[in-house]
């Protein structure tokens, strides 16, 4: 035959097309849902810091309160990264010759700041206030995870808008007594439930999480 004819095996396209018609949307949905999710893209960010500071040692083993270093967190929107002099409070005399601490000593001596890399970085069109959250009983651990167990700080939560809204819509499960906000391992007393305690606290702290656009995009 001189002319082209579709060979018999092209019949295989019939089931294949059906399969693709069902499979492609499923595939694309799965790929988009998981691939574009901040849980894939944002969670797990673990930059290498200029000084191998271990939160696990300081906040975990030594049990230092978060606020010892991040001292502005209760009063201002921004949780300040400590200056080198705060480090030198102790390291003046602890491991004073450690090479790992050299940048800290340098910084403390000449006033040049250490360039820590931000792990939990919201886009600049988002306004977030640490003090507002702490003063209403939202624990550090809710957003930052168990920092007291991290040798290297890692982003554990997606920090996406949906994730923020999740809590703003259902605050009960995320609220704890105000004096436990920095307690990473806080758990409700035996026999009590987190959501019940939270619901009571939401009442007593007068918590009305706002959900309008201008709360965060101001």
């Amino acid at each position: 035959m001189s002319l082209f004819h579709f060979p018999r095996w092209t019949d295989v396209f019939r089931p294949l097309m059906g399969l693709a018609a069902i499979g492609a949307p499923v595939y694309l949905t799965v790929l988009f849902y998981y691939g574009a999710s901040p849980k894939t893209l944002a969670v797990g960010f673990q930059p290498i810091q200029p000084v191998p500071f271990s939160h696990a040692v300081h906040a975990g083993d030594l049990g230092m309160d978060c606020r010892y270093c991040h001292s502005t967190v209760e009063d201002s929107a921004h949780a300040a990264v400590p200056t080198a002099s705060t480090c030198m409070n102790c390291h003046e005399r602890i491991l004073p010759d450690s090479p790992k601490l050299l940048p800290v000593r340098e910084a403390a001596r000449n006033g040049e700041p250490l360039e820590w890399l931000r792990v939990h970085d919201l886009p600049d069109y988002v306004y977030f206030n640490h003090s507002a959250h702490l003063s209403k009983g939202v624990g550090c651990v809710e957003c930052h995870g168990r920092v007291d167990r991290m040798d290297v700080v890692t982003q554990e939560q997606p920090l996406s808008m949906g994730w923020c809204l999740d809590c703003h819509r259902n605050p009960d499960e995320r609220i704890r007594p105000k004096d436990e906000v920095t307690n990473m391992g806080w758990e409700p007393p035996a026999g009590e439930y987190r959501d019940e305690i939270g619901a009571e606290l939401v009442q007593s702290y007068n918590i009305h999480p706002r959900q309008d656009c201008s709360t965060c995009h101001r």
Binding site: Y34, F45, P123, D124
Partner: peptide, 25 residues
């Protein structure tokens, strides 16, 4: 999803994510 990375995430809209504004510290 199951690994950590020391590379920051890809910012599709960098000029919005990193605005030219004054930030604390």
């Amino acid at each position: 999803r199951y690994n950590t990375s020391d590379k920051p995430r890809v910012h599709l809209v960098p000029d919005m994510d990193f605005a030219k504004r004054i930030k604390a510290q």
